[in-house]
Amino acid sequence: MLPLCVECGTTRNPCRCRVVGPTLGFLAFALAAVVEWPVGALVYPFRHMKGRRIMAHPAAVVYPSVSSAIPI
Rank of each mutant, 00 (worst) to 15 (best):
P3F: 05
M49D: 15
V43R: 05
S67N: 12
R47G: 00
A41S: 11
R18E: 13
C8W: 12
V62A: 01
A33S: 15
C5I: 15
P22V: 05
G9Y: 01
V34I: 13
F26P: 06
V20M: 02
N13G: 04
A30Y: 04
I54T: 07
A28N: 07
G25N: 05
A56M: 02
V20E: 03
R16H: 15
V66L: 05
M1I: 11
Y63S: 00
V34M: 15
T23F: 06
C17V: 09
A56L: 09
R53E: 06
T10W: 06
M55F: 00
I72R: 01
S68M: 09
G21R: 03
W37H: 10
R16M: 10
H48A: 12
P3N: 05
P58W: 01
V19E: 01
P3E: 10
R12H: 07
R18T: 00
F29I: 01
A60E: 14
A59G: 15
I70W: 02
I70R: 02
N13E: 06
I70T: 04
P64W: 01
V39E: 01
T10K: 11
F29Y: 15
L2R: 10
Y63K: 02
C17F: 12
H57M: 07
S67A: 14
G9E: 03
G21D: 03
P64K: 00
Y44S: 08
L4F: 05
N13R: 04
A33I: 04
M1A: 14
F26S: 08
H57Y: 14
L42A: 15
P45L: 12
T10L: 10
G9M: 01
L31C: 13
R53G: 00
M1P: 11
R52L: 14
G51M: 06
C17Q: 11
A60D: 11
R18H: 04
V34H: 14
I72S: 05
R47S: 10
A69R: 01
R47H: 14
R53T: 03
P71N: 07
V34S: 15
Y63C: 02
A32V: 09
A30C: 13
M49C: 10
M1D: 14
E7S: 13
R47M: 09
C15N: 14
C8F: 13
M55V: 09
E7L: 12
Y44K: 07
G21C: 07
P3Q: 08
N13P: 03
A56G: 01
A60Q: 13
V61G: 00
V39M: 07
K50C: 05
I54R: 02
F29K: 01
V6Q: 13
M55G: 04
A41F: 07
E7G: 01
R16K: 13
T23C: 10
T10P: 06
I72W: 12
S65Q: 05
P14G: 09
T11K: 03
V35E: 08
S68R: 08
A30T: 15
R16Q: 14
R52D: 04
P58S: 08
C17Y: 13
M1V: 12
H57L: 12
P64A: 00
T11L: 01
A41R: 08
R53A: 12
A56R: 01
P38M: 05
A41I: 02
V66R: 07
C5T: 15
L4E: 11
T11N: 11
R53C: 11
N13S: 05
